[in-house]
């Protein structure tokens, strides 16, 4: 690890004021990992972990979640268990209990990709680490990589489970920065790699995520994660679904996919294929086809296209039982 300075932020203002000097750290599960690999080299860490951003409270019909709420606290909170089971399921399918006890809501949103070429500093080629250097994953071993949203510059997957549920739930991310506070729709928060995979979000320098809000949603919810091990593994494919079926017709549908996209993947096309239809295997299959219509596989990850479809169909089947 590069040497760095350390500042414990006493309050939000101090954190924002110090921001130009350094990088925020909260739970540390992602930061410390990537710092130890040498991928990120902050000169100063601004510890925001003691800021009072740890509440989960009802806000209107929805809920407001402090950025420093730990993943485990969020998953087991009664409001989340009752109103947003898809989020609870997503959180509890991620990492391990110890990591969930450390990782924060804000940090999880900013989780970096698991691309092995990004993680191994011995590869000179990684557009995300070194813009313009190339992509070793394309043409390399890319079984874990994205089939949706990739570009010739990068096919790295967003690895978060929580983000998939957040995308489906139409979360809003509230940030506080040097030029004040602002709200960002979750689906707009992460950017596609395009020509600039080094840019991953619309967060501006010095901006701190302070809380996340979720609107009220109607319908049955489910998060399904498919992975190589039975637990403690990143998703090969996952689906967060909310299906509102009334009188035998789908009135509302929310669909997001994980493990297959370069960002948390909201599948509006699938939603369009569902709404107004009666739930059936054929309709679900059509929705899955729509969700993956733009997918592009690599030699070692093309199976994910079919897998993601089946994962989505299974998730939809579960919530329509």
């Amino acid at each position: 690890m590069e040497p760095f300075g350390y500042i414990a932020a006493a309050d939000e203002k101090m954190a924002i004021d110090e921001a130009p000097r350094g990088t925020f750290i909260a739970g540390g599960t992602n930061m410390v990992d990537y710092m130890r690999l040498g991928v990120i080299k902050p000169t100063t860490l601004i510890d925001v972990s003691r800021l009072p951003l740890t509440n989960i409270e009802a806000a209107g019909d929805g809920v407001k979640i402090g950025a420093l709420v730990r993943n485990s606290d969020l998953a087991y909170h009664p409001l989340i268990q009752q109103k947003y089971p898809v989020l609870a399921e997503a959180l509890l399918s991620g990492a391990s209990p110890q990591i969930r006890n450390m990782a924060t809501t804000g940090g999880n949103i900013l989780q970096r990709t698991r691309c092995p070429y990004f993680r191994d500093m011995h590869y000179a080629q990684c557009n995300k680490r070194q813009p313009g250097s190339g992509c070793a994953a394309i043409g390399g071993f890319n079984r874990s990589h994205a089939v949706l949203g990739g570009s010739p510059a990068c096919i790295a997957t967003n690895p978060s489970d929580m983000n998939v549920a957040m995308a489906a739930l139409d979360a809003t991310v509230h940030v506080h920065g040097p030029s004040g506070e602002r709200d960002i729709a979750f689906v707009d928060f992460h950017t596609l790699p395009g020509d600039h995979p080094e840019v991953e979000t619309v967060l501006q320098p010095g901006e701190l995520i302070t809380y996340v809000t979720l609107p009220a949603v109607t319908g049955k919810q489910h998060y399904l994660k498919v992975r190589d091990r039975a637990s403690f593994a990143f998703a090969l494919a996952s689906a967060a679904v909310v299906l509102d079926v009334q009188g035998g017709t789908i009135h509302g549908a929310r669909v997001a996919l994980g493990g297959v996209g370069t960002k948390p993947w909201r599948a509006k096309e699938a939603e369009a294929a569902l709404v107004g239809q009666a739930p059936s295997p054929a309709v679900f299959a059509k929705a899955a086809d729509a969700a993956l219509a733009g997918a592009k596989g690599q030699p070692t990850n093309a199976f994910k296209i079919e897998l993601a479809k089946r994962t989505l169909v299974r998730a939809l089947t579960e919530v329509s039982k």
């Binding site: 750290i25 599960t29 410390v32 972990s49 391990s96 110890q98 990591i99 006890n101 450390m102």
Partner: peptide, 21 residues
């Protein structure tokens, strides 16, 4: 998980936790 300790009441992985924090 070999580095699991209790941090307050919580189990955490101490390799991912900085001492200064």
């Amino acid at each position: 998980g070999a580095c699991t300790v209790h941090f307050g009441e919580r189990r955490i992985k101490s390799c991912m936790q900085l001492a200064v924090m």
